[in-house]
Design a protein around this nucleic acid. Sequence first.
DNA 1: CTAGGACTTGAACTAATGGTGAAGTCAATG
DNA 2: CATTGACTTCACCATTAGTTCAAGTCCTAG
Lengths: 115, 115
Amino acid sequence: MGTLTVGEVARESGVSGSAVRFYERQGLITAARTGGNQRRFDPDAACRIRVARVAQRVGLTVNDIRDLLAVLPPNPEPADWQGLHDRLTAEAERRIRELHAALDDIGSGRRLCDL
Amino acid sequence: MGTLTVGEVARESGVSGSAVRFYERQGLITAARTGGNQRRFDPDAACRIRVARVAQRVGLTVNDIRDLLAVLPPNPEPADWQGLHDRLTAEAERRIRELHAALDDIGSGRRLCDL
DNA sequence: CTAGGACTTGAACTAATGGTGAAGTCAATG
DNA sequence: CATTGACTTCACCATTAGTTCAAGTCCTAG
């Protein structure tokens, strides 16, 4: 099944080789092994990593992303992408709401701190 | 000038005593010293800490917050609060824009990863 | 004037986060 | 079959934001 090496996935996904191995350790991607114990990835590994990078920009940790990607099977169908998209969107919007709430508190800052 | 002990500032600001000392080390607040080398804070110290906590919610690090509070003199005037408010608002809005940009990229996720 | 709670320092420690680096092993090519 | 680049593991690094500890000092109320 797996045909891509660490280096190939790294190049395709734009992260370092050590990051690819890190992501495998963390369960974001999975790999088959050759007789000589080398990793071989499915072609969707790079894709999963690209999704992971976007999720990091939303503020998710690698742990969060593991859970997120757990619901994404190999060779995902449109519905799988949709679910993932929905979860990420909800998370980003939640963070935007938190920032707005902080802004509101800042707005009342002078009153909070009248000296 | 300074009349409040570490413990009093901690109580007023809602953080621990060790955090108060930490914030002083980091330059978020300043303290006078008694003859016996104990810290004595101005009453605005607790206020500055409350501002710092809001800034943390916006995503600033303690280092960022030191720079932010550096422009806030003791006994700040309305214009000082305004400047601080503007900087925090700008930062929060920048982060909101980043999240929106990430959302846009998520929207194109299926195309990015067509397998 | 003394008891004990609050304070002092500095260093070590915690815990999460996101990797990197060194030393050694594999595999494909000339 | 040897070279050389890619691969392996495991330990370690750096940052962030504090907490904890020990050993000692201060200060204030009774």
